[in-house]
């Protein structure tokens, strides 16, 4: 069951008016950004040594860690020759007064599923290259997103973290023993996880008649709706989701695709820089 959020902080009307007046002048509440620019992005990979791949993303004050764990398992019946990619998100209670301990709520599930679809549909991870013994043993790739600090736009920060962690990930070394079992030695590696495409999402918030890129928490709280667009490096749209209680016009959608692609290039650059800083990276 999905319920209208009834525990959100009350935002004074003047705050929304202030935000809208600033946008009309090409400004944002933080005094630095334009409506079209995302916050500063910092991506760092290899932050969790025990994970096969990991990344820490800061998007303004929002912080997300993604960890990639890789195991051996059985494939799905309808895709016996492919590995398995699973994305999960945890909105841990230390990240926001709005998050409660417990199983993932609809927001965490939505976030994980939008990211999962955007990676899956374009074939970001080459699942065909992840069969060890087709039909029997394949690599299972778990992407776990951990929201550490929620200051808005969890989608873009999480997708950046997921993508950076996948690009950072290495397949563990394995040996087939006599019984046919696969034994892993995680201290050694089989080589990088095969990643074919890079994907980022760009979230835009609609506030009154305006669209702004990368809303922070306050901006999200007064927004009518948000649109999340996933882009690959060629600018194709590989996933999308309208989220929030309001609606969008076709003109909004058109503008979102335009502004979205420009912000996507900023995110791709942040990914490149993070991976260039890593020796022996892909």
């Amino acid at each position: 069951m999905s319920v209208t959020p009834f525990r959100l902080p009350t935002i004074p009307l003047y705050k929304k008016e202030t935000i809208m007046n600033l946008i009309a002048k090409g400004l944002r509440l933080d005094g630095v950004r334009t409506p079209e620019s995302p916050r500063s992005v910092k991506v760092e990979v290899g932050v969790i040594e025990k994970a096969e791949g990991s990344a820490h993303v800061r998007l303004g004050n929002t912080q997300v860690i993604a960890g990639v764990k890789i195991d051996v398992g059985t494939p799905f019946r309808d895709t016996p020759d492919q590995g398995v990619l699973t994305v999960h998100a945890e909105f841990v209670p230390l990240a926001s007064p709005l998050f409660e301990p417990g199983p993932p709520d609809e927001n965490a599930i939505e976030l994980a599923r939008v990211i999962d679809r955007s990676l899956r549909e374009v074939g970001a991870v080459d699942l065909n290259a992840l069969a060890i013994r087709p039909g029997e043993k394949v690599w299972i790739v778990w992407v776990d997103l951990y929201i550490l600090d929620h200051d808005g736009n969890l989608f873009d920060a999480s997708m950046l973290a997921a993508m950076a962690a996948l690009l950072d990930a290495k397949l563990p070394y394995y040996e087939e023993i006599e019984t046919g079992e696969i034994v892993l030695d995680r201290s050694k590696s089989e080589g990088p996880l095969p990643v074919k495409h890079r994907v980022v999402t760009v979230t835009l918030a609609k506030i009154g008649d305006y669209l702004i890129v990368d809303p922070d928490f306050e901006e999200e709280s007064v927004a009518d709706a948000r649109i999340v667009l996933a882009f690959d490096e060629q600018g194709r749209i590989v996933g999308a989701q309208k989220t929030g209680p309001g609606g969008l016009t076709t003109a909004d959608l058109e503008k979102a695709m335009d502004l979205g692609w420009r912000a996507a290039e900023v995110y791709f650059k942040a990914l490149d820089e993070a991976l260039a800083g890593k020796t022996g990276g892909s």
Partner: peptide, 23 residues
């Protein structure tokens, strides 16, 4: 969508499309 007030109220994409295809 609610055509009488010109709003798209649900929008999801599962797959890969160009901007022209989305339009």
């Amino acid at each position: 969508a609610a055509p009488d007030i010109g709003l798209i109220t649900l929008f999801q994409l599962n797959g890969v499309l160009t901007r022209d295809e989305i339009r």
